[in-house]
C-alpha cells in the first residue's frame, strides 16, 4: 500500500514556541489514522499545516505524490483534502442543506446535482429532517455532523477530522463511528482524525500517532500504542483508560 499522505520532519514555531517539532509519518491509502496526545501537544497545529491554514517552517508534506506544504487552504481542498474545525464553523445563516450544497458545488457545478448529493449526505448523517433550518439553530452534536457532511460533500480523498466525536453522547458516538467506518469501507476514504475519545480511536483507527509537546513520541497500532510506556507516562498516565 502506497502512502496517500506523508509528512517528513514538519516543524512550526510561533514566536519561539515550537508547536510542531520535526514530525514525520505516513498515512497509507484507505487507512483510518488517529492522532492523539494531551492538550497543547500540537495536534490542531499539525492539522492546520496539512490543510494549508498555516505554512510549515520546515519539512515537507506530500499528498498523492505532490508536495502541498504552503498551499492555500482552498487549493489543498481542491486537491482532495477536506477538514472539519475543532471549534465548529458552519455557515450560520445558511440552511443546513445550503451548507452542504456549498461544499458539494466544488465538484458538482450544477446546483441540482449538488443538492441531490447534499441530501444523500444529510440522510446519512440524520440531518435530512432539519435541512431547512438555519445551521445556527442546530445543537452542537448536529453541527459537528453537519461539518463532517459539508467536508465530505467536497468529495475528498482524505478527510481530516478534528475532534468530531468528543462531546457526543455515547449513542451518538457509536453512530458516528459506524458512519465513518462505512465511508471508509465503501469508498476507501482515507481518514486522519484527532480524537480524545479513546473508545472511538480503539474502534476505528488502523494506526495511531501520539504527539506530546510537538514531537511524535510513538506510532503504531492502537493496541501497541496504549501499551507503550512512553505514551502511558506522558499522556495516558494521568487518566488511565
Amino acid at each position: 500500500m502506497s502512502a496517500l499522505l506523508s509528512l517528513e520532519r514538519v516543524s512550526k514555531r510561533f514566536r519561539g514556541l515550537v508547536a510542531v517539532d520535526g514530525v514525520s509519518f505516513a498515512v497509507p491509502q484507505g487507512a483510518i489514522f488517529a492522532v492523539i496526545g494531551p492538550n497543547g501537544a500540537g495536534k490542531t497545529t499539525l492539522f492546520n499545516l496539512i490543510a494549508g491554514a498555516l505554512a510549515p517552517d520546515g519539512g515537507s508534506i506530500v499528498f498523492a505524490g505532490e508536495p502541498i506544504a504552503g498551499l492555500a487552504p482552498d487549493a489543498v481542498c481542491r486537491r482532495g483534502i477536506a477538514r472539519t474545525f475543532q471549534l465548529v464553523r458552519p455557515f450560520p445563516a445558511l440552511s443546513v442543506e445550503d451548507n452542504v450544497i456549498a461544499g458539494a458545488l466544488l465538484r458538482q457545478h450544477d446546483v441540482g446535482t449538488a443538492r441531490e448529493r447534499a441530501q444523500a449526505l444529510l440522510r446519512r448523517f440524520e440531518l435530512f429532517e432539519r435541512r431547512y433550518q438555519p445551521a445556527s439553530a442546530l445543537t452542537l452534536p448536529d453541527r459537528k455532523r453537519l461539518e463532517v457532511a459539508r467536508a465530505l460533500a467536497t468529495e475528498p480523498k482524505l478527510l481530516l477530522l478534528d475532534e468530531v466525536i468528543a462531546g457526543l453522547r455515547p449513542t451518538e458516538v457509536d453512530r458516528m463511528v459506524a458512519v465513518l467506518r462505512e465511508l471508509n469501507r465503501e469508498s476507501g476514504l482515507t481518514i486522519v482524525m484527532i480524537e480524545h475519545v479513546m473508545r472511538a480511536v480503539m474502534a476505528l483507527a488502523t494506526r495511531v500517532l501520539v504527539l506530546d509537546h510537538g514531537t511524535a513520541i510513538a506510532e503504531g497500532t492502537p493496541e501497541a500504542v496504549v501499551r507503550d510506556p512512553a505514551v502511558v507516562q506522558s499522556y495516558l498516565g494521568a487518566e488511565v483508560v
Binding site: A51, A53, A72, P73, D74, A75, C77, R78, A82, R83, F85, R89, P90, F91, P92, A93, L94, D98, I101, A102, G103, L105, L106, H109, V111, A114, R150, A151, A153, T154
Partner: peptide, 25 residues
C-alpha cells in the same frame, strides 16, 4: 441560486470555512 451565489454566501458567512471547502475566496 447558482454556484457563484452559494460561494458568495459561504464567503459572507465565514471566509475561513469557505476556503476549507475549496472556494477560491
Amino acid at each position: 441560486r447558482s454556484r457563484i451565489g452559494y460561494f458568495w454566501l459561504a464567503i459572507r458567512e465565514d471566509e475561513q470555512a469557505a476556503r476549507a471547502v475549496g472556494i477560491d475566496t
